[in-house]
């Protein structure tokens, strides 16, 4: 096989099947992945959760993961957050001509490993090759199906006054990792992405709490964006204890240098959970048992006041508002 992906690999001929077989199929192998045009799947035991997500990230590889791992986690976590067990995934690749096959194998390895951990089968796929410069390395789209746990009903509209707000770990790690990996601002720090498949953790939350009101995985806009979304969708206020929000010191240092707010940096392996206050302790204890949840903490509560807003208690004991998300993260001097 060639060392680099070439346009001919997307042509649908012999080279295409060779690439698909050598790089993807042999790593993803499972009962449902065949050479036919579509996967035939057994009917689900309950309602299905169905979602899709596209992944572009530069650089494609970063401390703690790569775009392959990310593409599995993203879709698996979206399904998990609906209280559904991830079962099947499809994946579509758009690969830039000239992309090293070895790197593609590294991506496929990460996908296979992560899928195995998450308990999903990759049952269908597609590969296209775009000309040099038309895409940046490789873009991946994954689509997934999950089976909803009986009785699970989390929704962004279901936050209620009295709920505790829990985050499953320290915030902003993925965003900070990517920022550092791009090397644009000359900052060095030991930060790894939190990118992780969260079904194990999510299902354990349902084990200890019958009535999970909201379950979200914080992604692009970070935990802060999730909190604003939930406050808006549920028409409630959220009171955040600023000092309780777990932030890795190095992430805080990077944010300090660039004038960024860690709550708005991307996460790829963090759950934001709203449960009745009386269940909060059990949920946090359960989260801490997961390898991805050692820094889990209650960070606030839901109030009937200030609907749509996220209010923070400050160091001086006064109140302030977490400003709504502002879009593109740019370092600032003022």
């Amino acid at each position: 096989m060639e060392e680099k992906v070439m346009l001919v690999h997307g042509g649908g001929g012999k080279q295409t099947s060779e690439l698909i077989h050598e790089v993807f199929a042999k790593r993803f192998r499972n009962l449902y992945l065949t050479e036919d045009d579509a996967a035939i799947l057994p009917p689900p035991a309950s309602n299905i959760a169905f979602t899709t997500d596209g992944f572009i990230v530069s650089p494609w590889k970063f401390p703690g993961g790569n775009i392959g791992k990310l593409s599995i986690c993203g879709t698996v976590n979206d399904i998990s957050c609906m209280g559904a067990r991830p079962k099947y995934l499809s994946c579509a690749f758009v690969i830039e001509e000239g992309f090293p096959v070895k790197s593609l194998e590294e991506i496929a390895d990460a996908m296979a490993l992560t899928a195995r951990e998450a308990g999903v089968s990759i049952v269908a796929g597609d590969t296209k090759v775009a000309g040099h410069g038309q895409v940046d390395g490789v873009f991946i789209t994954t689509t997934g199906i999950g089976e909803r746990l009986p009785g699970a009903h989390p929704s962004g509209k279901s936050a209620r006054p009295g709920d505790a707000v829990i985050v499953s770990g320290d915030v902003g790690r993925h965003g900070c990792t990517i920022l550092l990996a791009r090397g644009e601002y000359g900052i060095d720090a030991e930060v790894t992405s939190d990118c992780a498949p969260l079904w194990g953790m999510a299902s354990s939350v349902f084990d200890v709490c019958r009535d999970v009101h909201v379950l979200r995985d914080a992604t692009r806009g970070g935990v802060g964006t999730v909190l604003h979304e939930i406050a808006g969708q549920s028409g409630v206020g959220i009171r955040l204890d600023a000092s309780a929000v777990p932030v890795d010191p190095a992430v805080a240092g990077v944010c300090g240098m660039l004038g960024l707010e860690p709550l708005y940096l991307a996460c790829e392996g963090r759950l934001v959970i709203f449960v009745p206050k009386e269940d909060a302790e059990a949920v946090v204890a359960e989260l801490k048992k997961s390898p991805y949840g050692e820094n889990a903490a209650v960070i606030g509560e839901v109030t009937p006041d200030e609907p749509g807003r996220v209010v923070m208690t400050t160091e001086l004991g006064t109140q302030t508002v977490l400003p709504p998300p502002g879009g593109e993260l740019l370092p600032r001097i003022c």
């Binding site: 190095a250 240092g253 001097i333």
Partner: peptide, 28 residues
């Protein structure tokens, strides 16, 4: 007008200091 960050000086060379703010390092 001016965001400032306290940081500890790790080393100095040729007018540049390597500083550390709780694990985030940069030459300034």
């Amino acid at each position: 007008m001016c965001v400032g960050l306290p940081a500890k000086v790790v080393s100095i060379k040729d007018g540049m200091a390597l500083v550390d703010a709780s694990g985030a390092k940069r030459e300034v």
